[in-house]
Amino acid sequence: MVALFSVEPLSLMAIIVGLCTLGLTSLRNCMAAYGVQTVALGLLAIELGVQHGEPVALWVGCVVLLLKGVGIPVYLGVVARRIGCRRDEGLLIAPPLLMFATLAAIALLVLTPGMAAVVPLHVWPSLLLVTIGMIFMMTRRMALTQIIGFLMLENGIFLYGISQPHSMPFIVELGVLVDVLAGTMLGGLLAFRLSDTFDHIDTTVLRELHG
């Protein structure tokens, strides 16, 4: 059994927001939830930087908070509004049911007796966040929500990076951040192209023949 409660409240909040995002169907709300999650992780990085006296973590936290936490939701919101896509009903099972299933899976994972020995305590939040991001990416049909799922997965990796005892070098963190930003912009552009060509961004019907 894992004593998750002793983990930082901010990373717990990021996991809880991620779990609740699984149940959201409105695109605007998904982006807002992703923004809240990233702001929480940025604040966590700043707090860790202040606690351990590492200015690197502080700067990384600020940059993440502004660019990823505020910039990306705004950008994706503009893209979504131009495309006119509002709701994402999800694939196979309804979002609330998916939320329950993920909660059950997480509970099973965390309450299994041998787990505390296999996975160290500081890895658990990032592991759960990566899992939630992957599940979100896999079970959505619109291209934009799949991008948000990928971004949540990257949030999990970022959390792993800052929760290590020895933090990652500044250049690596910045490199990953630039990659993520570039990837998101390309994803937004691709969503535009999809919408131009097919008049929708529903990935499940992309194989239909037209005309």
Partner: peptide, 23 residues
């Protein structure tokens, strides 16, 4: 409505899970 009320149950179950983890 189920979409809206499911958040209530998820929050409650999360609270139970956290208490279960504490011991």
């Amino acid at each position: 409505l189920p979409n809206f009320l499911s958040f209530a149950l998820v929050a409650a179950l999360l609270a139970c899970l956290l208490v279960a983890l504490k011991g």
